[in-house]
């Protein structure tokens, strides 16, 4: 994205494009990455409820992959995940490992 010069700005730093936060990818903030283990998932959707962003994608009532463009790696989903028989369906892994 080109950073504008001072003559190209909206007066008063007002943002006129509603919902333009989607253009600002925050996934790079992550140092830990949640990994979904589908074999341990009971489809309770706790991860979808607890995610403070909208980074757990759900389609037709079923949990899908993480949206890594916006997941900041807070780990709340992994903490809340009940898993199956003591095995978590979401685990946190260090980035670049």
């Amino acid at each position: 994205m080109k950073i504008p010069g001072w003559k190209e700005l909206t007066p008063g730093a007002v943002i006129l494009q509603a919902g333009n936060a989607t253009e600002f990818k925050t996934g790079s903030w992550r140092s830990f990455k949640p990994k979904w283990k589908e074999e341990n998932c009971i489809q309770c959707l706790f991860c979808w409820i607890y995610c403070p962003d909208m980074s757990v994608k759900v389609k037709d009532g079923k949990r899908g992959e993480f949206d890594y463009d916006f997941c900041k790696g807070c780990g709340i989903c992994a903490l809340e995940c009940p898993g199956k028989k003591g095995n978590k369906a979401i685990v946190m892994e260090e980035e670049d490992k």
Binding site: W6, K7, A13, I15, A18, G19
Partner: peptide, 19 residues
């Protein structure tokens, strides 16, 4: 809909002040 009062970091703040 629009937003007033966003956070503007060092990459753009000075341009707003110049304006």
């Amino acid at each position: 809909p629009k937003s007033y009062g966003p956070l503007i970091l060092p990459d753009l703040y000075m341009e707003y002040k110049r304006a």
